[in-house]
Amino acid sequence: MTQIEEASRSTGLREWLLSNEPQSARQARLGRAYATWSAFRENRLAMLGLAIVLLLVVVALFAPLIATHSPNVQALGDRLQPPSAAHWLGTDEFGRDIFSRLVYGSRITLYIVVLVTLTAAPIGLLIGTVAGYAGGWGDAVLMRVTDIFLAFPKLILALAFVSALGPGIENAILAIAITSWPPYARIARAETLTIRNSDFIAAVKLQGASAARIITRHVMPLCLSSLIVRVTLDMAGIILTAAGLGFLGLGAQPPLPEWGAMISAGRRFILDQWWVATIPGIAIFVVSLGFNLLGDGLRDVLDPKHRS
């Protein structure tokens, strides 16, 4: 009986969300979001990607509750133990529990990903939309600057920045952000060029809207979905660059349990104690794959050009 009631309530909610005659702006927005979610849910691989990313977030949030040991306490008597009941994923060369370090390392990975996204994506969006909308010499100047940044190999430029600024996680993030905005600027500009001459932009111009208002309120929302897709697909690259910097000793410094640095420390024992380097490697692989699957799924629902 209660099951039937629940079912009817949920179909009521569904109908409310998918109504063709929304009663309020909120209902219209939620309905749109629900339609996008329904399309996204169809894609199993994308759901797997979302699950992996959500798992990363949950693990990072509740690291102290999930970890079985402290990530930094050394126990030299237990060094290089294989996986066992006491140490699920074994121990490293200082006897630290690898599972716990992995769990705490997810915080660093998430920190890098979030900070790079929050700095690089808005910079790219702003430069791209302004260049695309302004046109003329403003466009030329902004895009040549973008080209210069694009001409450098990403990792090498990041390396140069980190060695100039000094090693450390913040500098690594800064270096990655500085090297990853140009593609976002290009995408935003390309989108803006297709939007700027459309009639709906002409219509807002004829209402007396300023260029700043047109860019922020009318152009940017339309660039956002392709940018979100691209950023999500780039997450894997960002994680790998951060891990690469960590591996080279230029990213997170010991004893921070950064995954790339963990691989770097474990490579000396790779033949005899394979788990020390392999397990953080698997973690990087899984999270990168998760972001890629999520990005692919998002592209299918958000990017109208790819929609069938």
Binding site: P22, A25, A28, D199, A203, G208, A209
Partner: peptide
Amino acid sequence: QMVFQDPYGSLHPRRTVDSILREPLAIH
């Protein structure tokens, strides 16, 4: 004010009718 030829191209695809109509009021 002006009315355009193609009604499929002259309305912002991500905005509701309400928000499209409020925009000129907000600008002025």
